[in-house]
Structures are given as structure tokens and as C-alpha cells.
């Protein structure tokens, strides 16, 4: 019993790791540019297919991570320059436009790759599991990897935002856009770069999520909804919001799923989140707008 409970807590940590990886890009874009990218799930899917392609050409996941980052960042660039840059001032309508982007991405990927799911393998290094207890289930290496990668992504993002000149500009823009603009900061460029960075993170998410299942056309949606929940709960006022929201949701869902079942787990977590926003209207680490 205690072994199972312990494993369950560890699993929750792994799920939280995936949530951080999936939500980080979305949260950063939302936090800085104020845009929710409804095609985020499809960006993840494109990342997954990139990884599948790298896999097929004989590469492994460590190669596909930077490639997926670049590919999806470029996709983000196209989407930002082509669509979103015109509608930053209409945040609700970006939801619709990016929803359309998502549909187009799905159809295009179906056209290119066909309907069959693509397999993505783990690199041999990560194939296997840690034997915490004598008999299975063991704790798979990939879960450890997810948690480590989540920490790395957060650390890199923290470094970029708080220790570089670019990060200083980004924080200025998010504090007061028009003032930043007056001070000579090219806000449009900041928005564009942040959108590319966030999209690239979605690509990484796809590349590391695909190996636990397969790259399929419709894999994106559930991840994007989970990412929204992380944002709503954690808030985007502070980088700490992402891991906090992810950790709470991940642990709560897995533990409740263990105690009851998966759907009740999700239901209770949702109700808890709705109650939580009574207390934290902008998320736990929310940024209080000046009204």
C-alpha cells in the first residue's frame, strides 16, 4: 500500500513535469503578449512529428529537441507575422484566429504524414527504469528526464527573463507597454521574439511527449487544455506560477485517480480550480493589473 502511494506521488511529479513542459511556452506568451494561443496543442503536435521525422532519419531524441525547437519557433514566427501581429489589441479574437491556425495545422499535417500514428523511440540512454522497489512498477527514466527537463526549461527561461538585457526589455514591456515604447523599445519585436520562444518550447514539449505515446494528428488538444488550467491556477505574474500550478494539478490528479478514478480526479481538480480562482482571481502568482 505505502509502496503504491509513494509510487503514485512520484508519478504525480512526472505528470507535473510534463505539464510544466507543455504549459511553459503558452504561459510565457500569455504573460508577455497577452495572447492565448489556441493552436498551442497543434504546435506541440508539430513538434512531435518533427521528432518522429528525426527518429525515422536515424537521429535520437536529444537531436530532435533542438530541431523541434527551431522548426516550431519558425512556425511561430510565420503565425505571428502572418496573423497575430495584426490583432494584439483584440485578445479575444486572437483565440478565434489561432483556433483557425490549429485546424489548418491539423489538416496540413494529415495531408503530409497521413493518418497513421508515427512512432518515436526513446534514446537508449533513457530506456529503462529505476528500481526503487524490488518488483515492478519501477520508476521509468523518462519520468526523471521530464522532471529534469522541466527544471532546465524554467531555469533557462528565468535566466533569459531576469539576467539578460533582452529579459529586462521583456519585463519592461509587460509592465507598461506604452511607456516601454516611449523609451525606444521595439515592442513589436519583443512580442515576436517571445512568441517564437514560446512556440519553440511547445516544439520541445512535442518532442519529449511523443515518445511516451506516439505522434498522432489529434494529440494536441488535451495538452493545450491542461496548459490553460495550469495558467489559470498558477497565474502568469511570476515564473513560479507554472511549476506551482503544474505541481498542484499533477499531484492532485494522480492521487485522486489512485483513490477514485481518473475522471473523478479531473472533475474534482476542476472544481477545486474554480474555487481557487474565487480566492486568486489571477492565479496564485497572478499579476495584478492596474485598473
Amino acid at each position: 500500500m505505502w509502496q503504491q502511494l509513494f509510487m503514485q506521488c512520484l508519478n504525480g511529479l512526472g505528470v507535473a513535469g510534463i505539464l510544466v513542459i507543455a504549459a511553459a511556452g503558452l504561459a510565457i506568451i500569455f504573460g508577455v503578449a497577452g495572447v492565448i494561443n489556441m493552436a498551442h496543442g497543434q504546435f506541440i503536435m508539430v513538434g512531435a512529428y518533427t521528432a518522429a521525422l528525426v527518429d525515422e532519419l536515424g537521429g535520437n531524441m536529444f537531436m530532435s529537441i533542438p530541431i523541434a525547437f527551431v522548426v516550431v519557433a519558425l512556425l511561430g514566427l510565420i503565425v505571428e507575422r502572418g496573423v497575430i501581429q495584426w490583432i494584439y489589441d483584440r485578445p479575444l479574437e486572437t483565440l478565434l484566429a489561432t483556433w483557425g491556425v490549429g485546424i489548418i495545422l491539423e489538416v496540413t499535417m494529415k495531408f503530409i504524414f497521413g493518418t497513421l500514428g508515427r512512432k518515436v523511440d526513446w534514446p537508449d540512454l533513457l530506456d529503462g527504469s529505476i528500481r526503487i522497489f524490488a518488483r515492478p512498477p519501477h520508476f521509468p527514466y523518462y519520468r526523471v528526464f521530464h522532471v529534469v527537463l522541466a527544471i532546465v526549461i524554467l531555469a533557462v527561461t528565468f535566466y533569459i527573463l531576469y539576467r539578460t538585457r533582452f529579459g529586462l526589455k521583456v519585463r519592461t514591456v509587460r509592465r507598461n507597454r506604452s511607456m516601454a515604447s516611449c523609451l525606444g523599445i521595439d515592442t513589436a519585436k519583443i512580442d515576436m521574439l517571445i512568441f517564437m520562444y514560446g512556440s519553440g518550447l511547445a516544439g520541445i514539449a512535442g518532442a519529449v511527449i511523443a515518445p511516451i505515446k506516439a505522434a498522432t494528428i489529434d494529440m494536441g488538444f488535451s495538452y493545450s487544455v491542461n496548459s490553460y488550467m495550469v495558467i489559470v491556477l498558477g497565474g502568469v505574474g511570476n515564473l513560479l506560477g507554472i511549476p506551482t500550478g503544474s505541481f498542484l494539478i499533477g499531484e492532485a490528479e494522480t492521487l485522486l485517480a489512485f483513490r477514485y478514478n481518473t475522471v473523478i480526479g479531473q472533475l474534482l481538480v476542476f472544481i477545486a480550480i474554480v474555487i481557487a480562482i474565487r480566492v486568486f482571481p489571477r492565479g496564485i502568482f497572478g499579476y495584478q493589473e492596474r485598473r
Binding site: 500514428g117 526513446w122 530506456d127 529503462g128 527504469s129 528500481r131 515492478p136 512498477p137 519501477h138 520508476f139 521509468p140 527514466y141 523518462y142 515518445p211 511516451i212 505515446k213 506516439a214 498522432t216 489529434d218 494529440m219
Partner: peptide
């Protein structure tokens, strides 16, 4: 999709 995820994770768990 569940099939693929289950078989993979089953194997990964030892």
C-alpha cells in the same frame, strides 16, 4: 491512442 500509450508505459515501468 490509449493502446499505444499503455503498451509503451507498461514496458517502461519494467
Amino acid at each position: 491512442d490509449s493502446i499505444v500509450a499503455f503498451y509503451k508505459q507498461f514496458k517502461q515501468s519494467g
